[in-house]
């Protein structure tokens, strides 16, 4: 069942929307990859609420008087983190859903898929200029935590993808899957570079570039006072006069992002907020399937 953006928007909450999208995706998939378990020790990790108690390393506790949890290679089939940009600019939407709603729905659907496959899924939310992490887990109960967290996310604050990338580089073990959902409207010049640098740490990085159709086509006619959603900036222009120049700039930006992703071996997916999200996911998963 493929749901268009309008239909999806009528569904209240990320839970429902993500589920609807996930079901649409599942009906489009033909096989589910099976990943075997491994017991090979990989590293220690400081205990955090929610970690399996059975993996608590009592010897280490004896040595350091701190709780450490043992991690193993291929402990799960996949360890994924959805990095969702919830900055103020993500709150822009000219259609049924704004960019944040599209991003959280996509993140929720991916969490569904991952958990259903007994893969671990976590979240890293950038909202109000602060980070909110939900560590990856594969338990069914964790899915509710993820979806509720996404549901409670509201746009606000500035975009700081660079520091988010740095943060993830610290906390994420190698070979994790990082899925970034953002409009990439970060004022800092090296933000994208730092996000893409995650790939250099053997992480599997995917980038969902969420854009609104109005940003792509600039369909304004009358003189407009444009207000900056992440700052105090404002400018009065006649959109017809700058439309050509704006489109040139914006499409050059899209092309540069796409080219940088290709260069860094990062999956790039341009997501319009008016398109069917299950299509987006099928397109994404299909491409990844072909790569493997």
């Amino acid at each position: 069942m493929l749901l268009d953006a309008q239909t999806l928007a009528r569904l209240k909450g990320v839970k429902l929307r993500a589920r609807a999208v996930m079901e649409g995706v599942l009906s489009g998939l033909h096989k589910s990859p099976h990943q075997g378990q491994s017991v090979e020790f990989a590293e220690h990790k400081e205990y955090a609420p929610g970690d399996e108690l059975r993996h608590l390393d009592w010897k280490a506790y004896g040595k350091f008087d701190k709780y450490y949890v043992k991690r193993f290679e291929h402990e799960t089939n996949l360890r994924s983190v959805m990095v969702v940009d919830a900055s103020a600019s993500m709150g822009y939407g000219s259609g049924a859903m704004n960019k944040l709603e599209v991003a959280t729905t996509l993140a929720g659907a991916l969490c569904y898929l991952l958990v259903r496959q007994q893969d671990a899924a976590g979240l890293a939310l950038l909202t109000g200029g602060k980070w909110k992490d939900v560590p990856p887990r594969a338990s069914a109960g964790h899915l509710n935590v993820l979806l509720e967290t996404l549901d409670a996310t509201a746009p606000g604050g500035g975009t700081d993808l660079g520091s988010a990338a740095d943060h993830l580089a610290e906390v994420l073990p190698r070979r994790s899957t990082v899925i970034v959902l953002s409009d990439l409207l970060d004022e800092k010049q090296d933000a994208l570079k730092r996000v893409l640098a995650l790939r250099q740490r053997k992480n599997d990085v995917s980038l969902f570039h969420v854009v609104d159709p109005a940003e792509l086509t600039f369909p304004f006619d009358d003189p407009t006072l444009f207000l900056d959603m992440e700052g105090e900036g404002r400018i009065e222009v006649n959109p017809r006069e700058i439309k050509e120049s704006y489109l040139e700039e914006f499409h050059a930006f899209l092309a540069s992002v796409k080219a940088a992703c290709a260069e860094a071996d990062v999956d790039y997916e341009l997501v319009r907020t008016d398109e069917k999200l299950d299509d987006v996911l099928l397109r994404y998963l299909g491409r990844r399937g072909r790569r493997k």
Binding site: Y92, K99, E187, T224, E241, I242, F250
Partner: peptide, 23 residues
């Protein structure tokens, strides 16, 4: 003019600056 919060303000500003003399 109608106020309109807009995400890619940087592009609007740049376009406006680029076309200012021509305009």
């Amino acid at each position: 003019p109608r106020p309109h919060p807009f995400g890619p303000m940087a592009f609007v500003l740049r376009s406006q600056k680029r076309t200012a003399s021509r305009l």
